[in-house]
Design a protein around this nucleic acid. Sequence first.
RNA 1: GCGCCCUUCGUCUAGCGGUCUAGGACGUUGCCCUUUCACGGCAAAAACACGGGUUCGAGUCCCGUAGGGCGCGCCA
Length: 445
Amino acid sequence: MTMLVRFAPSPTGYLHIGNARVALWNYLLARRAGGRFILRLDDTDQERSRPEFAEAIREDLGWLGIAPDVFVRQSDRLERYALAFERLKAAGHLYPAYETPEELDRKRKRQQARGQPPIYDRSALKLSADERASLEAGGRKPHWRFRLSGHTVRWDDAVRGPAHIETAALSDPVLVRADGTVLYTFASVVDDVDMAVTHVLRGEDHVANTAVQIELFAALGAGSPIFGHLNLIAAADGTEMSKRTGSLSIRSFRADGIAPMAVASVAVLTGTSEPLHAVASLEELAPLVDLAKVSRALTKFDPAEIVHLSARLIHDKPFVEVADDLAALGIAGATAEPFWYAVRGNLTRVAEAAAWWPVVAGIITPVVEEAGFLARAAELLPPEPWSQETWHAWTEAVKQASGRKGRALYMPLRLALTGRAEGPELKLLLPLIGRARALARLAAV
RNA sequence: GCGCCCUUCGUCUAGCGGUCUAGGACGUUGCCCUUUCACGGCAAAAACACGGGUUCGAGUCCCGUAGGGCGCGCCA
């Protein structure tokens, strides 16, 4: 049986790193097993689902390198849910309830106040046929609840091992709203059955849902897929992972010029026994994913780590991978490639290359502290053509002529040539700057 | 309140009763390299939440305490 996994976000906000963790684990596991990956939009909540978020999710996944094999949206599958609903109803698994959301809310508050669990009291089950009839005659439409067994549900969790939940501690879930639309728990199970999903790998926040859904799979006469629950990750600095606006959204990293694989590396490797490091591609990340390496404890990560790993990736990034980005910054032409290799080691973000480009191809303000020394150095500038050896040859000559060495020799030259006290190696920069520019900068007053 | 789960260096973790004077990674600090910054190399500091028990022996098993996470929606 080939592995079939799914990532099922609701299009109610932007993806954050917690979502990326789940998406990536599913994708990488499937890829490793030669299986398939479904992107399913859980958009049964008409109120909150938005097309722009749906589009954003696909974009963000694409940015991370995830290309789904199958794409579905629950809003396209309503007939399937209606069918399953009739089946469950006929089999006696569902019962109509008539409380309004406000009434249910009051009940919960009262239970909480008494120190009781806010679990649905099943009073709808005690309604007589007459009472139901009069409720409906009064204009009340029922919503439908799935009757839980009250037993302990057990499963062998793919990351946590033997797991169990007391369904008696859970509310009978509402599967169908009063307006006839279905809820996530139900649609999700129908989809997983229909599409023959083999592994449901999701966050630990879903464990209670798993118990409910296992009973739902059974009620539908289907076997359960393998369930696995990944530990939750949280920003160590307490940053909220709000799906809507959080600074930890995939989009914010993208806008910040972070390398996607830095985000992917942290999202996947955090909270596992695999040492966290920058992995350059999903191909190289895939062999590293192993459910046995996932911890069961809540894990904290430092968002700054992502920036750090991103810088590491950029330091090794080949020119071809950034050529387009550089061109967009106005960095193009024959000099672009050697320029990239000269400066990449000093960058944290690709966009920072723009700050160095004028040094080799534009106008800068040289910092001149000792005009006399620079003038003498200028006279010793070798004739072109220049190479990486030129810097050494030139500075040796200046050293002889001036008697200077060390910082006193190099720093004034760096300051005049680049306008800055720190930066890439001058032996790489100098040939790109060229004799004409170098002369002008050394002579600047 | 109930259900489920968690607790080893600052952080992520290894550890499945003796081999642990607790190992690795990131970060930190120092040194080296580089007479810039970064990279790289070397080194150092740094942890078993607490209390009982079981055992010849506990980081490892049991119980309790404390702390923490998730869930308990006509959200997903």
